[in-house]
């Protein structure tokens, strides 16, 4: 119980501090550019190599990655990309 509350605190603090206190700070251009690039850097680092191990089987994972990448390249809705990725991984596993 106490563990859960303390976990909540150490999770909330890094989420809250920058959002609340960086608003009024004027950033130098370099830092501003850095922060602009963060979402893309985070996306790259989240996807690779985590996606490869996401289904417990590298080949079905690759099928899911390829499937969702193709759907995303076609600029389909994100829900379709997600469902399509799951289906590709599942169907490839049946082969």
């Amino acid at each position: 119980m106490l563990i859960v509350v303390l976990m909540a605190a150490v999770t909330y603090i890094p989420r809250m501090l920058p959002l609340v206190f960086l608003r009024d700070i004027r950033m130098p251009p370099y830092l501003r550019a850095c922060l602009q690039f963060i979402p893309y850097a985070v996306l790259g680092a989240l996807i690779f190599p985590g996606a490869l191990y996401s289904t417990g089987n590298i080949s079905t994972a690759i099928a899911g990655i390829m499937g969702s990448a193709i759907l995303a390249f076609l600029r389909l809705n994100l829900v379709i990309v997600v469902v399509g990725g799951i289906l590709c991984a599942y169907l490839f596993g049946l082969l």
């Binding site: 996807i47 990655i65 969702s68 997600v82 399509g84 991984a89």
Partner: peptide
């Protein structure tokens, strides 16, 4: 197991 790919598929869909 195949649903484990869901969030990664979303990240790919964003990227």
């Amino acid at each position: 197991a195949s649903m484990g790919i869901a969030l990664y598929a979303m990240f790919i869909g964003l990227l």
